[in-house]
C-alpha cells in the first residue's frame, strides 16, 4: 500500500485542502470515504475488492495526521474537495463507498449527480435523521469516554480494543484519535452529525445504491439506514449480523459478498 498526498500540486494557495489517499489494486476506481475513527481502510474487505478495482482510501482533512485549514469546517467543504480530487484525477466509473461520516459526504456528493459516479454504497452512514425530536439517531459521542464509544461501535470488544484501545498504544496514535474526535466536532457539532435538508434532496440520487448496516450499531441507529434506503430511489438495504458500526471490519466476508453481489447485479452507468 502506498500513501501519498494528493491535491496539493495544483493548489494555488497555502491554505488549500489536502486530501491524503492510499491506493491498492487495479481496475475501475472504488473510493472509500472513511468514518470518524479513521480505521476503515484496515478492513480485509477492501483488500478483497482490490482484486477487481483500484481501491482508494482517503483521509478527510483534520483526521489522522492530515492537515485542515481553519476555513475548512463543514461537510460542504469536504464535498467540494472530493469533487475537485476526482475531477483532477479524471476518474470515471467510480464506486463510492462511504462509511459513517464518509457516508454522509458520499450521499451529499450523490445528490449533486456527478457524471463520474456509477455506484453508491453507504455503510452505517451519518447525515440523515430518521427518529423523532427526542430520539437519538446518533449516540452523543461527545458526552462519552472512549471506552463507552468502543462498547457502542463494536460487537467484538477484543477487536474494539485492537483498533481503538489506548492501552499500550503509542502516543502518536492516541493523538490521532484525539485529532479524529476534534475533526468530528468541527464538521458535525450542530446540526449534530446530519444535514436537515438531506432527506428531501436524496430523491435526486440516480445511481444504484446499496445501504449496509451493522445489525447492532450503537453509534448510528439502523433506522437511519432504512430511512436512507427509502429516500434514495431504488436503493437496497442490507443488515449484517454480528457487527456494529463497522461491519466491514467486524464481518469482512459478509461485507465483501454483499458488495460483490451488488456490483455484479447492477449495470454501471455510462
Amino acid at each position: 500500500m502506498s500513501s501519498s498526498p494528493t491535491g496539493t500540486a495544483a493548489a494555488p494557495s497555502t491554505d488549500a485542502v489536502e486530501i491524503r489517499v492510499s491506493r491498492r489494486g487495479s481496475g475501475p476506481p472504488t473510493i472509500v470515504l472513511p468514518g470518524i475513527f479513521g480505521i476503515d481502510g484496515r478492513s480485509e474487505a477492501f483488500d478483497a475488492l482490490a482484486d477487481a478495482s483500484t481501491v482508494i482510501v482517503t483521509t478527510h482533512p483534520g483526521f489522522g495526521d492530515s492537515p485542515r485549514p481553519a476555513w475548512c469546517d463543514s461537510i460542504d467543504d469536504l464535498v467540494l474537495a472530493y469533487l475537485d480530487l476526482v475531477e483532477r484525477e479524471e476518474l470515471t466509473d467510480v464506486t463510492l463507498v462511504g462509511c459513517c461520516i464518509g457516508g454522509w459526504i458520499a450521499a451529499e456528493i450523490a445528490v449533486l449527480r456527478p457524471a463520474w459516479l456509477s455506484r453508491l454504497i453507504l455503510v452505517d452512514s451519518l447525515g440523515l435523521r430518521a427518529g423523532g425530536t427526542e430520539d437519538r439517531d446518533f449516540a452523543d459521542i461527545f458526552a462519552m469516554t472512549l471506552a463507552e464509544i468502543r462498547a457502542l461501535a463494536f460487537v467484538d470488544q477484543g477487536l474494539a480494543e485492537t483498533h481503538l484501545g489506548t492501552e499500550g498504544r503509542p502516543v502518536e496514535e492516541v493523538l490521532e484519535i484525539a485529532r479524529n474526535q476534534e475533526a468530528t466536532a468541527v464538521y458535525g457539532w450542530q446540526p449534530y452529525l446530519h444535514n436537515p435538508k438531506l432527506h428531501r434532496r436524496l430523491g435526486r440520487v440516480r445511481v444504484p445504491t446499496l445501504v449496509v448496516w451493522g445489525e447492532r450499531d450503537g453509534i448510528a441507529q439502523p433506522r437511519v439506514g432504512r430511512a436512507l434506503a427509502e429516500a434514495i430511489p431504488g436503493a437496497r438495504f442490507a443488515s449484517i449480523p454480528g457487527a456494529g458500526h463497522l461491519p466491514h471490519l467486524e464481518q469482512p466476508s459478509a461485507f465483501t459478498r454483499l458488495v460483490r453481489d451488488f456490483s455484479g447485479r447492477v449495470e454501471p452507468r455510462d
Binding site: F142, A143, E148, T166, L175, A178, R179, T184, A185
Partner: peptide, 22 residues
C-alpha cells in the same frame, strides 16, 4: 464525568491524550 471535562476542541488534541488514556 471525564468526557465532560475535556470535550474535543476545548483544548489542543495533544492536551487531550491524557484524558483518552485515562
Amino acid at each position: 464525568a471525564p468526557p465532560f471535562e475535556a470535550p474535543p476542541g476545548y483544548m489542543p488534541p495533544a492536551a487531550r491524550v491524557g484524558t483518552l488514556t485515562g
